[in-house]
Design a binder for these strands. Structure first.
Length: 563
RNA sequence: UGGGGCGUCGCCAAGCGGUAAGGCACUGGGUUUUGAUCUCAGCAUGCGCAGGUUCGAAUCCUGCCGCCCCAGCCA
């Protein structure tokens, strides 16, 4: 540990960048970009890419552009553009004045395509989509040249101009790169670079174009135009790198960024494919892109995950090229760690059970003081009303005590958090035998001190019944039952693995009174229950709290083992 | 069966020829008016497998095996 000088790169991409910096490859410049397609909301996988790209720019004194890869207007719209901008900002990153759209470059891209034709490296092809597929060959058989492959430069120039002019219908013609139909890399078998799309209004360019460039052609040139030095993308584009380089080399573009691929994040018990997330939304399996069960940034924000915890998560999972499947516990740990430090403590009874303190004077009451954070005095204290009638959680009482159960039992004692020790004297049941009330007595000499001569192990939370704030609490669990719901196993659809208990809504909860004024964006630890945040939805009167994540629960473990 | 990648603890992940970091998870102890937090300790004679080179190999060589990606006019 004596190498304070040579700070470790952190991951292989940073190692490459440091080597490039050392060799002066791009004049000591580092420029990255985050290039989402605005066809859906950003999810946790994008967060990894955002943290990587913006993080590198920050650390190496470089820049990171936000560039919308908007070449397929059919699937894209401004709602997604705005949501993406909002989410990147929320995560804590800023692109300054470097907001771009690939569509900004449509005119230049068109010129590059013309240049490709002039160089005899692109041609207009009349094959139908079906024929194109047939001519492409298979993984093991080479493809065949299109009969239109040898059109003259003049004819191609004329045809391409007429494609732009709208003389041909969708699918009638495409512009293709002329590379090698026998290449073992399918991407090099004369890939399409421009297709015709009539009747779609592009969210940025309106109806100015009826031809749109394809990803492979657009991306490398957009990177070059913006002076990107390191173009980071996921592993599935590794096979596209030769094409990325081919366009730039063939066009002799002055600046040639290098594409570096890393593996995409897979998180257990969720899906991070835009197609699948879109289906969850459109088929109504969730309430929207910002449903707290969604792995989208919007969903996690509403759930109460903090930007800091997500950035910490992205830091911890690393960046490599190996297939990975990260356990949910890593993310949850990051969330707990951040919230534990920052969340004020409160008490909330989720499953109320009435308690009457029989030796506490009727109509009386007192204000007790409770710290907002047990380890951080700077967070101050709050006042809690204590009265004769309280609510505790049903789970904190048992008539018959299991081994190791250290909460309230008939005839036993328990500490009321921040208050007195009480003893349960009598259990009141209704005709159906259901417990409806507990008759207890308190020991007035146990405020801020332990009773003498006996040990009280358990501590439970409570709220004063006449002061309690009624609220709705939504308990979230994993969206899927399977660790890897997206894996296509035996023809099963990923929706088959949806967890029917991913949302449990509790409407009869009672919160301590100072939670009455909590507003959207505020978060708390409900002691012994978990971290909760205020949901923006106030549509049905009751305040709504979302459970962000539970507390670690070793009792649940013991109980599950039959403790 | 073509091409491109990847295989280090249950899950991530350092390591780049000198004798296996760290995090999460898990297990056990301590503190505790949250069964929380905090804290201490444990957790790979082993790096997909088999050979080889070397004084010495997770790291180099050879051959296998397994997994992922590619046949959109999607990105």
């Amino acid at each position: 540990m004596s190498n304070e000088e040579n700070s470790t790169p952190g991951n292989f991409i940073r190692a490459i960048i440091e080597a490039d910096l050392a060799s002066g490859k791009y004049g000591g410049r580092v420029a990255t970009r985050f290039p989402p397609e605005p066809n859906g909301y950003l999810h946790i996988g994008h967060a990894k890419s955002i943290c990587l790209n913006f993080g590198i720019a920050e650390d190496y004194n470089g820049t990171c552009n936000l560039r919308f890869d908007d070449t397929n207007p059919h699937k894209e719209n401004v709602e997604f553009v705005e949501a993406i901008k909002r989410d990147v900002h929320w995560l804590g990153y800023d692109w300054g004045d470097r907001l771009y759209y690939a569509s900004d470059y449509f005119e230049r891209l068109y010129d590059y395509a013309v240049e490709l034709i002039r160089r005899g490296k692109a041609y207009v092809c009349d094959l139908s989509p079906e024929q194109t597929r047939e001519f492409r060959g298979t993984l093991t058989e080479p493809g065949r040249n299109s009969p239109y492959r040898d059109r003259s430069v003049e004819e191609n120039l004329d045809l391409f101009a007429r494609m732009r002019a709208g003389e041909f219908g969708d699918g009638e013609k495409i512009l293709r790169a002329k590379i090698d139909m026998a290449s073992s890399n399918m991407n090099l078998r004369d890939p399409a670079i421009y297709r015709i799309r009539h009747g779609v209004v592009h969210h940025q360019t309106g109806e100015a174009w009826c031809i749109y460039p394809m990803y492979d052609f657009t991306h490398c040139l957009s990177d070059a135009i913006e002076g990107i030095t390191h173009s980071l993308c996921t592993l599935e584009f590794e096979d596209h790198r030769p094409l990325y380089d081919w366009f730039l080399d063939t066009l002799e573009v002055e600046h040639h960024p290098q594409q570096i691929e890393f593996s995409r994040l897979e998180l257990e018990y969720t899906v991070t494919s835009k197609r699948k997330l879109t289906r969850l939304v459109e088929e109504g399996h969730v309430e929207g892109w910002d449903d707290p069960r969604m792995p989208t940034l919007a969903g996690m924000r509403r759930r109460g995950y903090t930007p800091a915890s997500i950035r910490d998560f992205c830091e911890r999972i690393g960046v490599t090229k190996s297939v990975n499947n990260v356990e949910m516990s890593v993310l949850e740990n990051c969330v707990r760690e951040d919230l534990n430090r920052r969340a004020p403590r409160r008490m909330a009874v989720l499953h109320p059970l009435k308690v009457v303190i029989e030796n506490y004077p009727e109509g009386a009451g007192e204000m007790l003081q409770a710290p907002n954070h047990p380890q951080d005095e700077s967070m101050g204290v709050r006042e809690l009303p204590f009265t004769r009638e309280l609510y505790i959680d049903r789970d904190d009482f048992r008539e018959e005590a299991p081994r190791k159960f250290k909460r309230l039992v008939t005839g036993g004692e328990v500490r009321l958090r921040n208050a007195y020790v009480i003893r349960c004297d009598e259990v009141i049941k209704d005709d159906a035998g259901e417990i409806i009330e507990l008759r207890c007595s308190y020991d007035p000499d146990t405020l801020s001190k332990n009773p003498e001569g006996r040990k009280v192990k358990g501590v439970i939370h409570w709220v004063s019944a006449p002061h309690a704030v009624r609220a709705e609490v939504r308990l979230y669990d994993r969206l899927f039952n399977q660790p890897n719901p997206g894996a296509d196993k035996d023809g099963a659809d990923f929706t088959d693995f949806l967890n029917p208990e991913s949302l449990l809504t509790l409407t009869g909860c009672y919160l301590e009174p100072n939670l009455r004024d909590a507003g959207p964006g505020e978060f708390f630890q409900f002691e012994r229950e978990g971290y909760f945040c205020v949901d923006p939805d106030y549509s049905h009167g009751l305040p709504v709290f979302n459970r962000t994540v539970t507390l670690r629960d070793s009792w649940a473990k013991i109980e599950k083992q039959g403790g």
